[in-house]
Structure formats: C-alpha cells, structure tokens
Design a protein around this nucleic acid. Structure first.
Lengths: 254, 254
DNA sequence: ATAAATAATTTTGAATGCAAAATGCAACAG
DNA sequence: CTGTTGCATTTTGCATTCAAAATTATTTAT
C-alpha cells in the first residue's frame, strides 16, 4: 500500500510540468531529479520481487544486494522496512527478511478488497471519463478480444491490464490508484499462474463486454457491480490454480 | 510531552530474563514476544502524530525524538520511512520529515475509499457476524443514542467508533481492517474538528438506525449501501469544518 | 542602515563499526 | 552411524561516524 506523496524534488514553483517537457533548450536544462537511495531501492527491490528474481519464501540476501546495488546496508534496510509494510517481504526479528509467500487465505483477503476498490474506480470513472479516454479503452478492448480469438493468453493479459489501468486512471483518484497498484503487486505472481479454462475465459470476455457497455452508458453502479463480479471470478480462478500447484508441489510455494 | 525511554540502558545480558517468567507448564509455552525498535517506534510516533503532539506541517525533530525515546537515529529513521509510506509524514530530500497536512483534496480522495472499504466490511460482516457480536453492537448503539440525547459529542464519537470497529472486526478480514485503520488514522484529526450541525447529527443517528436494521436482517448489500452513504455525509461534514477553519486561519493548517 | 557574500553551525543521508543473536560445523558420546 | 554439545563464523539490529547539504550567523560592501 503506497499512499505517501513521497515527493523526491524540493518544492519548486514550477510544478506544472511534472511529466511533460523534460528539456526546453539543452538537455542540461532538465530538472535535477534527486532521489533518495532508499526510494530508489524500494522500487528496485519491488521489481526484483514481482518479476520473480527473488522467489517467494526465499531469504533476502542483504549483503549480496548491497554489493550488487553498490550501497550500504542502511538504505537497503530502510527499503526493506517499507516493503515489509507493503506486505511484499516478511521481517522476522533477528532473522532478517524473506520474500512473502502468497497463501490461499491471503488471496481471500486481498481479492475482495481489490474488488471493492475496482468497483469504486469504475463508479468514479463513469462520472469523470472523457471521450478520448473511453475511445482508448475501446481500442484496447478490441485488441484484447482479438487476442482471445487467437487464444493468445499473454496478449490478452496485457490488454486486459491496460483496460483496468485506464479505468483506474480515469477515476482521477491518485490514492485509490496507488492502493490498487500496491494490492495488484502482491498478487501479480499468482495471477500469471492462472491458466483459465475455456469457460472461464469466455465468461471473463463476456464480463468485459458488460463493462464496456456500462462505461458507454456512464452507468457507474452498473460498472461497479460488473467489476466486482469480475474480480470475484478472477479470485476463484487464481485460487484454483494456486491450490492445484500447492497440492502438487507439497504445499505452499508461491 | 514526557516519553518513556525505550531502552533500559546498555544492553547487558541481564535483559534475557525480563521476558522469561510467564508460565512454564500448563498454559502452554507462551510465545516470547520480541519487538524490534523500529516497530515500536512506528507505533509511538504514529500515536504522537494522531493525538496531535506532533502538529501537522511541523518538522519532525529527529534529534529531540531520539533523545526522548533513548534510541539512535537509525531505527527512528526507519520508522519515518514507513510512516511516510503510510502518508502520515512527508519526506523531503535533504530537508527531513514534516508531519503531513491534510488538505480538502486529500479528504476527497480518502473518504470515497473509506466508504468503499466500510461498505465491503459491512457486507462481509453480515455474512459472518454471530449473535454475541451483534448484541455487542446493539449495546454500543444504545449507549451512543443516549449520548446523542444528552448532546455528549465525545461520548457519541467514542461509541460510534466502537460500532464501526466492531463491524470491521466482524468482517473477519485482517488486511481490510488494517487498511481501514490506516486510512482512519490519516483523517482522525480532521474528524474531531467537525462540529456537526443538529441536522447532520440527527441524520447520522438515523443512518445508524438503518445500519442496525440491515445488520439484524443480515442484509449485506443494504448495510453496505448505508455505510457508504454514511461515509459520504461524514466526508461532507468534515470538509466543511476543514474548509471553514482553513479560511479563518489563512489557509491550510491541519 | 540594507543587502549581498561568506563563514560557522546544524541537520541530513548514508557508511561503517560493534555487540548480540543465529547459523553452520566439527568433535564426541551413545 | 545418529544425534547432541561446544565452538567458530556469519548475520542482524542498532549506534556511531562522516561527508554533503541546508540553515543560521556574521561580515563586508554599497
């Protein structure tokens, strides 16, 4: 859960150009971005965990990471504290940090929350979204359907993700977006080991059609309801996959 | 503000028997609870911030806090990183930490999220709550109504809080509870400067009656809807109070 | 005098040092 | 052999130290 504003630059009055126009004349005129080490490390280690370089259950090799990143233990340990707070690592007193495992119980806790947040995002998006953003979603939707037709799971996931991100973004609530991304990060690994059945996949696609219909009508409550149901189904799928895998590999691994 | 020192003094080996005396035999081997300093500090500093000992906008006096707590800067800074992540503190590079201000925009972001989470908690509570827990809520409700009748705002707030906590607890989702408490912590200060109008107060009481009715019927969706509306009204009240105060004290203070 | 420039002090971010705890390993008894 | 015990090594938590940056105080120039 990353709520903080965590601003890295000193409060200059030129805040309007946060993302756009890095350089005006010379590249050297770009705003000097000073990030603290711990901030950078949070991001890097989060990436290492979510992309699987650091496997669940594994001990976090403090010393090795320090050497690899070329930093001392202090900022790295600060980053670990934050990641522990986020739920990505587990901190055991006097025994260091381990990458958090994801249990079926965790999924049962996280997915309802994600469902509630997505439903909220959908409602807000319906009142705030403009035509351009809607068109963008339509486009991603078409591409996703094409991937479904071609049975291209990777492509499907990627466009799917884009749609949900777009909805979240259209909601216009940065803190909501941060919380969603934090929760999504926790379950990301599990989501990718879900090999949907044909029925489930078809159902998911149908739900996406509903979502788009609700969005076009700017039907906030309707979209919220669909999104919530969508997440519930996703949860069931992921749980099955996780349970199957736990069973075959002699209990909890991811 | 007098704070007890965390450490006794130099860590001698005589510290080993301070935890070892509970029970050896029958009540099973009680877990030895060892807390790390940074963990303890997170809690203490969170308390200092939410109870107002550290005022919003104020710089966090690193050195002074270290002396008061009797710890070095390392664990305290680790705690600050976590609190920054939680949104209670703002970290500005090379300029230290300040207690986060709460703007009207923040409220507009936080309250809808709290509403969605409370609605979820209500739904879950309806499927999970047992009669004992419901009776407990009924009791708190009656007391709260009595406080309303007596126009005792403090008492009202306290029983109100107890009811919402009980619902959250009945939901049986620890992560949901943690997120709710984190968000509540961010807006706690603002909530107490809301001096409700008589109409708003009456409306809030009416909403609580609805909540209880829904709970008795185990009507999850109904309870969720009431809770969401309840939070929306609370948000409006708090925003008004905050806006009024900002206006009179020359812009953002809390 | 006021404002700019510079020096002194404090504060901050990060590296290093150190003692307690945990872990690995070898010697030894059964 | 197996499993316990004692010792050496590594890891961990925290304190301390150090350099860079920011803040304050002081001096100098106008």
């Amino acid at each position: 859960m990353q709520l903080a504003s965590l601003r890295t630059d000193p409060p200059k009055e030129s805040e309007m150009n946060d993302v756009a126009s890095p350089e005006r004349l010379h590249p050297a005129a770009a705003q000097i971005v000073r990030r603290s080490l711990h901030d950078e490390l949070i991001e890097r280690m989060r990436a290492l965990i979510t992309d699987g370089s650091l496997a669940p259950g594994q001990k976090v090799p403090e010393k090795a990471l320090c050497e690899q990143f070329g930093v001392s233990r202090t900022p790295l340990r600060e980053a670990l504290k934050v990641l522990a707070h986020e739920g990505l690592v587990e901190l055991i007193p006097n025994r260091g940090a381990t990458v958090a495992r994801l249990t079926v119980e965790d999924l049962d806790e996280v997915f309802p929350i994600m469902g509630a947040l997505e439903a909220l995002a959908g409602e807000l998006a319906c009142t705030n979204i403009d035509d351009a953003a809607l068109a963008e979603i339509e486009r991603a939707h078409v591409q996703m359907i094409a991937c479904y037709a071609a049975q291209d799971l990777d492509g499907y996931f990627s466009h799917n993700q884009a749609i949900h991100d777009a909805i979240t973004h259209a909601a216009g609530n940065p803190m909501l977006a941060a919380m969603q991304s934090g929760l999504a990060g926790r379950v990301r690994r599990a989501r990718y080991l879900a090999n949907m059945s044909q029925e489930r996949w078809a159902a998911a696609v149908a739900e996406h059609e509903e979502m788009l219909a609700a969005l076009r009508k700017r039907d906030g409550t309707g979209l919220g309801r669909v999104l919530k149901r969508h997440l519930e189904n996703k949860c069931a799928t992921v749980k099955e996959a996780l349970a199957a895998r736990d069973a075959e590999t002699g209990e909890a691994r991811t």
